[in-house]
Design a protein around this nucleic acid. Structure first.
Lengths: 248, 248
DNA sequence: CGCAGTTTTGATTCATCTCAATTTGTGTGG
DNA sequence: CCACACAAATTGAGATGAATCAAAACTGCG
């Protein structure tokens, strides 16, 4: 599967070893920004997207307060976004994977309101926002799709509020695992077996619980035969029962 | 203050007693969708906005699963949005007041993902979304402003995640009061004295705590001289100390 | 191979929830 | 306009889920 995501060779005539992004050649057409565009429109997108950018594990794609200029489509890899308060508390606000968009937070004030960090070596396609708005006003389907994507982010956030506001620790973790499962599945990976890219601490931060509690819940799930855990390797053994756990 | 917000008389030639919305005449020009538009652009907005709709306290503007067709600018009044799970748990996801926009959640799937309920008699200006997208692609400043508004919603939601994920009950309530204070202030009302339109239960639902805990926190704040509470009437007596409370 | 970071597990504490009773406020109809 | 019924808010006592503190085990990286 990852082989189809390997970097293309450069396609500019220059000698710089940049990786020209090319939506028209990309395996993520059905998942990413081009959804719903026809062939010629996708080709116009190619001109819009900047050179691909590679990040090593742990590297920041952007930081809070950075000037906003582009949103980023994840070509390969895995990210987290987080907020930091003055008094040092850190809240993970999301985990993003292949095909997801990063940076929408920056539009509102021309600067980013959170940090985006690669949790594994990754590659992103920067989409300069000025260009995107320009094309969006010409290509109605692009405009419409972009609006849907922003709205989807709002809906997603509502779900997280429900999670944080109303669920108990076990329910949160079950919801989290099922969400990952579903997202891996829609990207062609196994929904029942996957590798966590984040630490227990990061999971805990996202779910509003301490890392010890995350660990204890994993253990309890395992004891009950719901999942199998070996460090970061997770297997979901009883998805129906996990789902049932959520509606208590 | 409310007198300037009183309903205009109808301005159509028909005999139906509808209230034609007119951004160009509205006192909320600086707060609402028209921000940043010039006079002639605002006049074009007038044609875009549908007839004003009145809601009584307790009435739904829309419900989860309702077909999405318009977003709504709040002309007067106060709303909450909330989600309901199958097993009956209810999460308030936001409180909206004059000048705020409602309905952005519906764009992503052509149907609403939450309920919007008036917490007092209110009036909204419906903006049919198809029209809005059409005008947005013609008026760049409208397009740009609309994107900022959606992004602001995303940023706001991140703040709520921080609140729910990392703060203790007292901090949440302090943050909540300060947020209301700031929003009333920017609408020309007193930042230090206001009337809560929602119940303790709704505050608790929003902040991820039980109504009894909300009530206890109010009492404690009052004992400590931070605020004065008489049912729904709140006076903030020591804003700096309330702020300090948040960064513990 | 050893060390640092991560994870697991245990014992204890604490914040918030739950259950319950009382007070206060509000809307309706006589 | 008052009285009644119902909804909302306050307060207390006790239960509990998750946090905290602490130590040990595991992992993988240099």
């Amino acid at each position: 599967m990852p082989s189809s995501l390997k970097a293309h060779t450069e396609c500019t005539a220059t000698h710089t070893p940049t990786l020209k992004a090319a939506c028209s050649q990309c395996g993520l057409k059905e998942l990413c920004l081009p959804v719903g565009l026809n062939q010629s429109e996708i080709e116009r997108l190619d001109n819009l997207v900047g050179d691909r950018r590679k990040l090593r594990r742990g590297e920041h794609l952007y930081r809070t307060e950075d000037h906003f200029e582009a949103i980023y489509a994840i070509k390969t890899g895995f990210f987290k976004t987080d907020l930091l308060t003055e008094d040092g508390r850190d809240q993970v606000t999301g985990f993003q994977m292949t095909g997801d968009l990063l940076g929408l937070d920056g539009i509102s004030a021309d600067k980013h309101s959170c940090n985006a960090v690669a949790l594994e070596d990754s590659e992103v396609c920067p989409i300069p926002f000025a260009n995107l708005e320009h094309f969006a006003s010409e290509i109605r389907s692009l405009q419409s799709h972009f609006h849907r994507l922003m709205s989807r982010e709002i809906v997603r956030d509502q779900g997280v509020m429900m999670l944080l506001g109303k669920m108990r620790a076990e329910e949160r973790l079950a919801a989290f695992l099922l969400n990952l499962s579903q997202r891996f599945n829609s990207r062609g990976f196994s929904p029942a077996e996957f590798h966590l890219r984040m630490t227990r601490d990061e999971i805990g931060s996202y779910l509003g619980m301490k890392l010890e509690t995350v660990s204890r819940c994993f253990s309890r799930f395992q004891d009950e035969g719901l999942i199998s855990v070996q460090q970061k390797h997770i297997r979901l053994l009883d998805i129906p029962r996990l789902k049932a756990l959520m509606s208590r």
